[in-house]
Every structure is written in C-alpha cells, then in structure tokens.
Design a protein around this nucleic acid. Structure first.
Length: 324
DNA sequence: TTCCAGGTAGTCG
DNA sequence: CGACTACCTGGA
C-alpha cells in the first residue's frame, strides 16, 4: 500500500530543527532531499513514513508519503505523525506565554517552529533516555540505532532497510557483553567469529545492565499502560524505580515518551541557564531548579526547557556558561 | 595522552 | 538526607 497526503500543523513548524534538536526520544530520521523518513508502527502495522515541510509554503502544509505491506488508513498515519511531532500543540499560545516573561521572550525568535519530538512508544523512550545519561549526543545516537539494527524487526523498502525498536521481551534477553554472548553460543563457531550482538557492543557501557533490568521490570512490576494513565507526580515516582533512571531521565521519559508537558528535565545546562537568568551569582541544586521550572512554567515546562536550551546553544550563551 | 560529556548508583559521614 | 566519587566509551 502506498499513499500520499497533506495536512496542517497547529501553528508554525520547523521539521528539521525538531528532528535534529537532540531530543533524546528517538534518533533523527533519515534525511534525503528535504524529506525525512523512518519506520513507524501504525495500529500494529509497519509503515515507512516520509515527511516533508517547506518553510516557504504559505499554506504551512505537512506532506506525507507512506508505504506499508499492509493496508493502513491515512487518518491513522496522520494521527501517529501528529503525535510524534507534537503537531497539535498550540505554539502560538506557547509564544504568548513565553512573551510574558522577559527572560523567555528572546527564545521565540531562535526556536520558531521547534516542537517536542516524541518517541514511537514509551518503552523506546525509557531505553533511549537511560542510554543518554552522562553520554554525548553523538554516541547516544549511534547506540540507539545499533540496538534497533541488532534486535529490532527489519523491513526493506526501496529507500533502504529500517528497523523497529525491539520489545521489552527481546531486550531483556540480550547479552550484556561479549563474554556473556560467547558463553551462550554453541562452541562450533568459526575461529574469526565476531561477538557483537550484545549491549556493550552498542556502546552503552555500564548502562547495559540498566537496560536489561529495566526491560525485565516493565514486564512485571511496572505496567506501562497504567503508567500512561497516571498523574505526573505518581508516574514520576513510579519510573524512578527503574535502574538508571534518576530525576533527569525520569522527566525525559515523561515528556518525550508519555507527552507530559509539565515535566521539566534538568540537566547541567538547564541548571546553568536557569541560574544565569534568574539567580545570577547563586548556585541551586538540580532539585531546586526542577521545582522552579514546574512552578513557573506549569504545563509549558517541557517546552520552556527545550526552548531555553536551543536558545542558549544558538545565541552563544551555552558556550559562555561552560565550566571553567 | 588526558580530559570530559545533556547523570545515576553506591558509599560514607 | 547531603556530599562525594566511580563509571563505559570515544572524540577532541
């Protein structure tokens, strides 16, 4: 099945900025000639989605070309795409909110059309976010793509091979490192066999055991369907139980995996930016920064975090806030 | 070569 | 509790 259609986002949308802004929900989609593509699961069916958006288009249309071995309605595809790119978020309303705070107002011009880039599903976001902790964005991207290639379901399209993110069941069984993979193998392997189908071979380092244990836990004590129905505070406390999940990673999961816009993930940069803007000369604890963000920004906290970081990056503020 | 990157878990006072 | 440190990895 192949289909093609257009629709409109609510307010401005910058597709490439949203995809390449380093949000740790899912790696950037594959780019080719102003379009981006990725394999998406729609109503349980694999679907290659190719998305395009011209900034110069006066009608502000999002263009979709989709391809699947199964029949999928355009409506269902649109709905999934709207969810992943936050296309129903009212950015004009966000800009009104940002405009009211002199500290936030400058972010608007730097981040026009930047939106929350959600994960395909909560589990992918949990593993993605755990993998991102204390890790460069470059290495993180490589790791997540390696995990997908090794354990995800692969599908071949004319534009290349694409992979789903593996299920908890599959990842829970993945070997932690070379040694474990070796021990599980038959011993009639060729002498030059390379052991690389294990988590540490994906570059996740010590996070490998977190990934395995978290995958076990979401199949037993932590129910992701229930999690999605919880209020923010309860959901936060619940996922803190997962190994490798502290306050920052928990907020990323709630924001990028479950769409809880009130989450305010505090990393070292956001901490420095908030201190610089609102508490010059003072030093706050990460927890205090988180409380400040949630109190002041309410339901827009997640977007404020996103906008502040990119504003700081583009304006050169980030560079000046580096630790000496 | 040495240092450090978009934190967390473990240990100690 | 609050402060302190080790931790995989790989690019600069």
């Amino acid at each position: 099945m192949k289909t093609q259609f257009n629709f409109n986002p609510k307010g401005p949308f910058n597709l490439s900025l949203t995809i390449n802004s380093g949000q740790t929900s899912q790696p950037p989609w594959k780019e080719d000639s102003h379009h981006f593509q990725e394999l998406v699961i729609v109503n349980g069916a694999p679907c290659l989605v190719k998305i395009g958006h011209e900034d110069s288009d006066p009608e502000n249309r999002v263009n979709i070309m989709a391809e699947s071995p199964e029949e999928i309605s355009g409506k269902a595809i649109e709905s999934k795409v709207r969810d992943i790119f936050g296309l129903d978020h009212d950015l004009d309303q966000l800009y009104d909110f940002l405009g009211e705070d002199p500290k936030l107002k400058p972010t608007i011009a730097f981040c026009q059309g930047l939106r929350i880039f959600k994960a395909h599903n909560p589990f992918e976001c949990i593993i993605s976010s755990i993998s991102s902790a204390n890790c460069s964005i470059l290495r993180w991207t490589r790791s997540v793509n390696d995990i997908k290639r090794r354990w995800g379901d692969g599908y071949r399209f004319s534009s290349g091979d694409f992979y789903t993110f593996p299920s908890p069941t599959v990842l829970a069984r993945a070997p932690e490192h070379d040694l474990e993979e070796m021990q599980r193998c038959e011993d009639n392997l060729p002498p030059d066999f390379v052991f690389d189908k294990n988590l540490q071979a994906c570059g996740v380092g010590y996070r490998a055991k977190y990934i395995i244990n978290a995958s076990h836990m979401v199949q037993s004590e932590i129910n992701l369907d229930k999690l999605a129905r919880m209020k923010y505070e309860k959901a936060f406390d619940t996922i803190l139980q997962l190994p490798g999940v502290g306050p920052k990673v928990a907020d990323c999961i709630l924001l990028y995996g479950l769409g809880m816009g009130e989450a305010f993930p505090v990393d070292v940069w956001i901490k420095r930016i908030i201190e610089y803007l609102y508490f010059p000369g003072e030093e706050l604890k990460p927890q205090e920064v988180r409380e400040f963000g949630m109190e002041h920004y309410g339901d827009w906290a997640g977007y404020v975090q996103l906008y502040l970081f990119h504003y700081a990056r583009k304006s050169g503020l980030l560079e000046s806030l580096k630790k000496k």
